[in-house]
Structures are given as C-alpha cells and as structure tokens.
C-alpha cells in the first residue's frame, strides 16, 4: 500500500507520458522525468520510515503487554502470599491463646489455677490501693475427700471434683473467681466485697455443697465443705490475707467441719 494511494492514477498517467515516443524531445520531459524519479524515491523512503516506526510501536506494545501480564502475575502472587501469611498468623494467635489458657487453668476442672488467681489478686490489690475497693477471699476444703479416693478410686474422686466445681461456680456471682488451689482445696476470690457482704454467700456455698448429690457409675456421694473467709486488710500482703483465711479454715475443721468461719 503506498502512502499516496490517491495519486496512483496520476502517477500511472505520468509514467505513460514519459514513456511515449512522441514526447521524448519535449522541453519539459527531462524535468518531469527527474521530478517523477525523486517522487518515487521519496515515497519509498516514507514507506520504510513508517514500517520502522510501526515495528518500534509493535515492540513497545508487546513490551507493555508483557509488563502488564507480569504485573498482574506479581499482584496475584503477592495477594496469595499475604493471604497465606495471614492464615499462618491467625494460627499462631490461636496457638498462643491455647497456651495462655493452659498456663492459667487447671486441666481437670477447667478452673483458674494458682497463677491466674495470683494475677487476679494482684489486680484487686492495686484497685484497693488506688480506689479503696474491698475484696475478700475464701479458702474451701472438701471434708474427708481422701476417703472418696481411697474407697472408690481416683477416677471417682476426679469426677466428684468436676461436679462440685460446677456447683461452686453456679453459686458464685459473675465477677467472683473460683480457682483450684490444691488437690481438694479451692480458693474463691470475691471482688468489691467486704467480709460482711460475703457472709450470706458463704452460707449459700456451704448449703450448696451439702445439697450436692453426686451419682457416678452407680456410686452415690454426699459431701460437705469447710471454709475460712478473710477480707483483705489495708497494708496487708496477699499472702497474709490468704494465711488468715487458711487459719480460719483449719479452725472450721477443728470445730466439726461443714461450716465456714471468718478470720480474725
């Protein structure tokens, strides 16, 4: 395709005129022949130029396509990496949470363990020092629990612990924390509670243990518990409060069990 498609008939005419034997000696013949030659040469040059420019453009176009394709690929890959990495991170988060749960709870009963109770007591101590909020602790020991293990085996003993744990928790208020302190010993932490306010709750807990009817694998168990209660005193350490509660618990045992006593 020539650059001057519309000129084709005119050029054909001129070529014919220049070839014609009658016009060979015409004064314009040489000038026209030269002009015609230069025109054809120019036309060819333009065509080559256009072809080269087209080639460059095509290459540039292909490069652009390839770059765009590569960009899409990289974006897709990046999204995938981010997606997978996010899922790994979620997994790690869950793993951490599980570990934290395990490090804070008793495996058998699911109750708070000593570590968590100590953390909670430290918080309450800080709240008391800042805002004078009272708190009270109760040490609870299941009476003659060793007999259950001895007579029926540890599986029954463990089951009894699980069941009485549920009963204890049902009897407590939302912000109270019940934890397993030792074998059959529990610590109940009562935030925002004075000794006086704790009294009805203690009677209720004793009652609740007494009423607990445990049926397990054909074995029927009745339990009672002894409890010692102490309100935290200003300038007293947590250990001292716990020791007073423990002493009251021992006294409750000495006085015949199945009762609660307030620490002096």
């Amino acid at each position: 395709m020539t650059g001057s498609g519309g000129d084709a008939p005119l050029l054909a005419d001129i070529a014919e005129l220049l070839e014609h034997p009658d016009y060979q000696d015409h004064p314009l013949h040489a000038a026209l022949a030269e002009l015609y030659r230069r025109h054809l040469e120019q036309e060819m040059r333009v065509e080559r130029l256009v072809a080269i420019a087209d080639g460059f453009q095509r290459t540039a176009q292909e490069d652009l396509h390839a770059t765009r394709h590569e960009l899409q690929r990289q974006l897709r890959r990046q999204r995938k990496i981010t997606h997978i990495a996010d899922r790994y991170q979620a997994l790690l988060g869950e793993r951490n949470e599980a570990l934290l749960g395990e490090s804070h709870h008793d495996a058998l009963t699911g109750l708070a363990n000593r570590r968590l109770m100590h953390e909670y007591l430290e918080q309450l101590l800080a709240a008391k020092q800042r805002h004078h909020r009272p708190f009270t602790v109760a040490m609870i020991d299941i009476d003659h629990f060793k007999r259950i293990n001895d007579q029926h085996g540890h599986a029954v003993g463990d089951q009894a612990l699980v069941l009485l744990t549920e009963a204890l928790q049902d009897a407590l208020r939302t912000n109270d924390l019940c934890g397993r302190w030792g074998g059959e010993e529990f610590l109940v932490i009562l935030p925002e509670t004075t000794l006086e306010q704790a009294e009805p709750l203690m009677s209720r807990l004793c009652q609740c243990m007494r009423q607990l009817d445990i049926h397990y694998q054909g074995i029927h168990l009745n339990l009672t518990a002894s409890m010692g209660v102490a309100e935290h005193r200003t300038r007293e350490s947590i250990e001292q409060t716990l020791q007073r509660a423990d002493k009251a618990l021992l006294q409750a045992k000495r006085e015949g069990r199945d009762r609660w006593l307030a620490a002096s």
């Binding site: 890959r77 995938k80 990496i81 981010t82 997978i84 990495a85 790994y88 997994l91 790690l92």
Partner: peptide
C-alpha cells in the same frame, strides 16, 4: 509448621 511472610514467599 509455622511460616512467616518471608518464608511463605521463599517457599513459593
């Protein structure tokens, strides 16, 4: 087991 982001990229 656990891979961080740059390890995910390396595996890919």
């Amino acid at each position: 087991v656990y891979l961080n982001t740059s390890s995910v990229k390396a595996m890919m």
